[in-house]
Simulated scan of single mutants.
Amino acid sequence: MNQTPTLAALMAMALLAWPAGARAQAPDATALQARNWAAACAGCHGPAGRAPAGSVVPSLAGRDQSELVRQMQDFKQRKREATVMQQIAKGYSDQQIEAIAGWFAAVR
């Protein structure tokens, strides 16, 4: 029996995870949208950006927003080599990348 979670299960876990620092206030529509975009990263980077122990894919949770934006922009502009991230990054606008990076930066 396959014990690997499905992409739908990983996305559901990521959607349920909300950055601890943001729980005190109700999230606005932009923050909710950023969370939804970030959920697409769960398949590789783990629920809420927390990659499994020993993973070759890095965790994104709690990393500096500007660092994440810079890396995504480098993927998008093909300045950084990757297996699939160049394709994924080019599908996001600069505003979406900022929002996603901000969401991951807030995850604790």
Rank of each mutant, 00 (worst) to 15 (best):
A31K: 06
R78H: 13
R63T: 08
A20H: 07
A48I: 06
V56R: 01
W103A: 09
Q95R: 13
Q95N: 11
R70S: 14
P5A: 00
R50T: 01
Q33A: 08
R70K: 15
V57I: 14
G91L: 00
P5L: 06
Q87P: 00
P27S: 13
L15I: 01
A51D: 05
G91F: 03
G102T: 12
Q96K: 09
K76F: 06
A31C: 02
I100A: 09
L60G: 10
K79N: 00
L60Q: 14
K76N: 10
Q3D: 03
R35Y: 02
G102Y: 03
R70D: 08
P58T: 08
R80M: 07
R78N: 05
Q95S: 15
A89F: 05
V69S: 00
S59K: 13
A48D: 04
A82R: 04
W37K: 04
A42C: 05
R63Q: 14
R35H: 06
A48V: 04
Q65V: 04
P47K: 11
Q25D: 14
Q3F: 14
A53D: 10
A99C: 09
V57P: 01
A14Q: 06
V56I: 04
A39L: 12
T4Q: 11
Q25P: 01
P58Y: 07
P47A: 13
A53Q: 03
L10N: 03
M11H: 05
D74C: 05
S66A: 13
A89M: 06
L68H: 07
E98F: 02
S59V: 06
V69W: 00
V69G: 02
M85L: 13
K79V: 04
E67Y: 15
V57Y: 06
Q95V: 15
A106P: 10
